[in-house]
Write a protein that binds this DNA or RNA. Structure first.
Lengths: 290, 290
DNA sequence: ACAATTGTGAAAAATTTATCACAAGTGAAC
DNA sequence: GTTCACTTGTGATAAATTTTTCACAATTGT
């Protein structure tokens, strides 16, 4: 064998720390669609990664190759070896781990959940729900339970940037009745309720419903009793090889909703985002881009 | 796309009959270890197939390409495409919606993120990290930032059931220095930090590191500066068609970790879970299973 | 303000590709 | 056995492309 067991991908990741900003950007670009981009001409790679030609030349040498052609040669060798290798099992996600490894079993389950969930979703209902959520004239209440309040808050944090006039309610807190005092007809409640379904959440939903509010429910495949009150319900499959349920699929739906709603009033959202950025800059809460 | 669906491999096999002896010999050599050999220089390919250089040049044109570089470019494109969607392509996810619908675009992106992320994860590091997290002798601190504290809390809520001796710290709060007073050598910090990377989080990590604690970092593909202090880092790809990033992949990793750690001491975990169930029953917080 | 990083534009060096003319080889037909 | 049409390799060369390197300016973080 000409080389060691390390793939170039491994080697790049190992060296990632020793690389400078532009070089890292280049490295990630190589990994992004590996190994195709590294097999083209140097200039194309540079343009692809949005770095200059010398940067590529410099990094390749930093990685220990005499020049770009040598680097490419090893990439090809690797590709050749991989194709030859009978263990080209493409059904595992973490290729370095056996398929029985938790990483692969879990990922399998989650992908399956996503497939199943998306297959059953009604796009029209989803769009309608996004329309409700994006309407700034309606006050938006986001409600989560013991575990799901984390998802609720995730949604809340993003919605806060997209639109005004919203509240995060934790149904397990005993202060939620106060919020409902202000709820009025036409307001929107996004409610998260997965097993085990919470009594408080149901009561809250009933009162919201009684006041004429629209309810959008995120639940699991067995559907929280809240769904009878809901204008739109979205059920995720949540089974994983664990004693607990998976929130990953629900998270996907939530993020999709964020993405959709943001598009409804993109101009305003953009303005709000920029304003937020400015404020962050002033508080120096975040690091400058390195 | 301008090109047809045929791979170069297909195209070669189709034309195999129209080719002359030397050309066929060349063609078979290309297919022999495909596509690696076609990606090297023309001369190498000629030598490999034991034909002359003009033969290669002639055949490439016979196949319909303007020249060898064009042939190579298509090979690379093919490789790129193949790496991109080993699983997708067949069906849209939300079948009732067009593939341009946000539901499908978003899901595509997240599935791609998962695949990419899992492909780069080191299972040994993951197992080692789970070992640290599952060790009840070490105090466990879970740290999140402005957005990521939701993930942190999700992890915290589950870990709370699995093991004692843990704390949820929000790095954006200004009370976190108090927690660090108690941190000692061997303790474990699980830190979430994705862009934009937060100064507070970095400071916290530095102090934890100075006290000899082990740091496990969940970050994005650009990697928070905290990773230099971390014992184990796990980077998720987080790009989605939205103005924000996706936490879904990180969520998957977190849940997998929960699943793995729970297995390490399943007996105790089970006992704790049952105890928790009892307490919930007494508080009548949840609905009885219907 | 300083040091390190990075891009620019350009030019030189190296490699690769494309062609050419011609000789050698092949096999089928007569 | 000879001829003929066709294929292939050789060696050389021109053209094109790619790689490498340079000095210097712009940028960035400290």
């Amino acid at each position: 064998m000409s080389g060691d067991m390390l793939t170039i991908s491994d080697r790049i990741q190992q060296k990632l720390d020793d690389l400078t900003r532009a070089e890292r950007q280049l490295a990630l670009s190589i990994l992004e669609n590996y190994p195709a981009s590294g097999l083209g001409p140097l200039t194309a790679l540079a343009k692809d990664a949005d770095v200059s030609v010398p940067t590529v030349a410099r990094m390749v040498q930093k990685l220990g190759y005499k020049g770009y052609p040598e680097f490419q040669a090893e990439l090809r060798e690797e590709l050749r070896a991989k194709a030859k290798d009978p263990i080209a099992k493409h059904d595992t996600w973490a290729e370095a781990a056996p398929s029985e490894h938790m990483l692969n079993r879990f990922t399998d389950a989650v992908i399956g959940n996503i497939r199943h969930t998306l297959g059953q979703i009604d796009p029209a209902a989803f769009d309608a729900a996004c329309g409700l959520v994006g309407d700034p004239a309606r006050h938006l209440y986001i409600v989560g339970g013991r575990i799901t309040h984390t998802l609720a808050e995730y949604l809340f944090l993003h919605m806060q940037v997209i639109r005004p006039n919203l509240t995060h309610v934790q149904s397990t807190s005993n202060s939620w009745p106060h919020y409902l005092l202000n709820a009025k007809k036409g307001d929107v409640f996004i409610i998260f309720d997965v097993r085990r379904y919470e009594n408080n959440t149901l009561k809250l939903a009933e009162m919201a419903h009684a006041r004429g509010a629209e309810i959008i429910l995120f639940t699991d495949q067995w559907r929280s009793p809240v769904h009878q009150l809901a204008t739109h319900s979205f059920s995720s499959r949540i089974v994983v090889p664990s004693a607990w349920d998976s929130a990953a699929t629900t998270m996907l739906l939530v993020e999709t909703m964020i993405g959709s709603v943001q598009n409804l009033h993109w101009d305003e959202t953009k303005a709000r985002m920029e304003e937020l950025e400015d404020m962050f800059d002033q508080t120096r809460l975040f690091r400058k881009f390195t």
